[in-house]
Amino acid sequence: MTDIEKYILRIADTTLILSQRLSEWCSKGPSLEEDIALSNISLDLLGQANGLLEYVSKLNGEISPDEYAFKRDEREFYNFQICEIENGHFGDTIIRQFLIDIYFKLYYQELEKSKDETLSALATKSLKEVSYHLRHSSNWVIRLGDGTQESKDKIQKSLNNIWKYTGEFFEMDELDKKMLKEKIGVNNKTLKKDWDKLVDETLIKAKLKRPEDGYMMTGSRKGIHTEMLGKILSEMQYLPRAYPDAKW
């Protein structure tokens, strides 16, 4: 696998696994509107993953987009660990979405400037969708944070629990540095300042307390994951693995 293929797989896997997680809300949402909203967001992310996997497949020339999604094992996935954590209650899902939506927005804004034309075009497209997602998740953070005592306590706890998964957004390993140098990739470190600012703006409106940066989960860039990824893959990959080449 070439460097650029691996680099694209990181963002492709992040959108794919988060999409799979969100799709679990379909038919189980707290209200019809939210059921539809979360399913819509899941679908947008799946589309983004599809565009990226098609591009990796084209660069690779041998592996199809479906094979990337369905034939790899845990250690060959490079999605952020935050995508794997269980949906929990609605507030848990909203906090996870809010924290990653801001990241996506800032990341895609930078990726838009990539000298790789396909990546730049996909980033522009995704950015439009992510702006909608962020408006949705921010509004809910404010509603729940500035809601009843119970909703406030619950979402503050969600925020405190999920915070440790946000460190991965801003890591720079050798591959990130190389891609940045070649003007293909993004400088993740510099996203942190704007991410902090945008997170704070909403948390203030939501009357929530920003957790301290403490221990941060890490490893996804090397294919190291939480135990939840295996369970997601077993569901996502079951059919194509049990019935190879099955067609609708």
Binding site: S42, L43, D44, L45, L46, G47, Q48, N50, G51, K125, S126, E129
Partner: peptide, 8 residues
């Protein structure tokens, strides 16, 4: 060109 990335 697709409308939305994931539009079925």
């Amino acid at each position: 060109t697709p409308t939305y990335s994931g539009c079925p």
